[in-house]
Design a protein around this nucleic acid. Structure first.
Lengths: 216, 216
DNA sequence: ACCTGAACACCGTTCAAGT
DNA sequence: ACCTGAACACCGTTCAAGT
């Protein structure tokens, strides 16, 4: 890579390279130096694209949000309840693809353009149902919290599994202090994400799912 | 600090020291070496208390959960709806005291004793309302997701404020792509956390708040 | 058992200098 | 404008050795 006034790569290239390392070696292994090496650059050259490692991390969060299918979420031919469900499942799936990227959300402001558009889409949907803006803002906060929290718990659960794979299984377990938790784990019903989001939307006063036409 | 067979400090001392640095200089500044120095120890001595930096971080999460007032949450003299509200507000307040500690939750398994007891307390409450265990497990997952997500958004918002304080205020703003988000920001109602948790509990089928006796 | 000291293989970031 | 190279002040973790 010869020095010179022409930009040899883009910010997007850097974010992509960062995610490649992220996927291969985990979130802690993403370093300015490592990403630069993968792109054939010097660490210092990175600072002409991002002012700090934190700025790169914010761009990574933005990239996750940018992949959302917002057109589908705004298409009024499907009922709003269905569209929120799809949008939420979509975001969750995108964070599942980038296991561990959710930590980056909590580590800095969520003020990227695409992250804001996610909230804007929720506001549009709720106001479109006739909700006053103040109510729609509360409902949006509720859905954002629920979805991000569920994604956080997904990531934590993945960590539990990884740890359990390493640790030797105990032959006998102690009398538990969490009997209901263990009993519930045995029951192990289907993933409650969609059902719980439906319950939240019920509580927020959205038209009940039961009265909606079936989604084909 | 003389070498010798007697343990000069406890794991709790290390966690406390880690939080002191956390509060003073931020989450990124917490290092094995820094905590050791504060305690007058060598970095290597830390590895007789925690097997890795990650293990220390897990212990920090545990310490946040251990401060919860679970006795109040289990006291059946108050209605369950009131007790969930208190428990949720309590957890949120504890993470607010340790700004940024929520990132640690997403970065590893949430399987500490006190973190599990938090879930167990929720399960007890919902089953105590007559919910079948499978339903209570779903409801617990919903409340955990909502509360942790809200805390995550609290932390992200704190990051936005910190960034805004640094950046120069723009004299003119561009035509926004997020008109509803901006309009909603101007409205800026009261903190929707408790109200939204109530809506979620409504959706989960809990006895409506309106029919409850007032809490004095 | 608990601790030290030296060492390995890394970090993020800044600065002066080249084209 | 974009890049390199050297440098500063750090990291987490391992290992051999001391008491």
């Amino acid at each position: 890579m010869k020095p010179g006034p022409r930009r040899s790569i883009s910010q997007a290239d850097i974010v992509d390279a960062a995610f490649e390392i992220f996927e291969e070696k985990g979130g802690d292994a993403v370093s300015i130096r490592g990403v630069a090496a993968r792109l054939g650059l010097t660490p210092t050259a990175m600072y002409t694209y991002f002012t700090s490692k934190n700025a790169l991390q914010r761009a990574m969060v933005e990239q996750v949000f940018s992949g959302l299918d917002l057109a589908a979420a705004s298409d009024p031919s499907a009922p709003w309840r269905t569209r929120v469900q799809r949008l939420a499942a979509d975001l969750r799936a995108r964070f599942a693809e980038h296991q561990g990227a959710i930590v980056l959300v909590a580590s800095g402001p969520l003020d990227g353009r695409h992250a804001l558009t996610f909230g804007e889409t929720l506001l549009e949907g709720f106001t479109g149902e006739g909700m006053p803006l103040a109510d729609a803002a509360r409902a949006t906060a509720a859905v954002r919290a629920f979805v991000l929290g569920a994604i956080t718990l997904d990531a934590a659960a993945a960590g539990t599994d990884a740890e359990a794979a390493d640790a030797p299984a105990p032959l006998w377990t102690e009398a538990t202090q969490h009997p209901l938790t263990e009993a519930a784990a045995v029951l192990a019903g289907p993933d409650p994400f969609a059902a719980n989001l439906d319950r939240l939307l019920d509580g927020l006063g959205l038209t009940p799912a039961a009265t909606l036409p079936p989604v084909e």
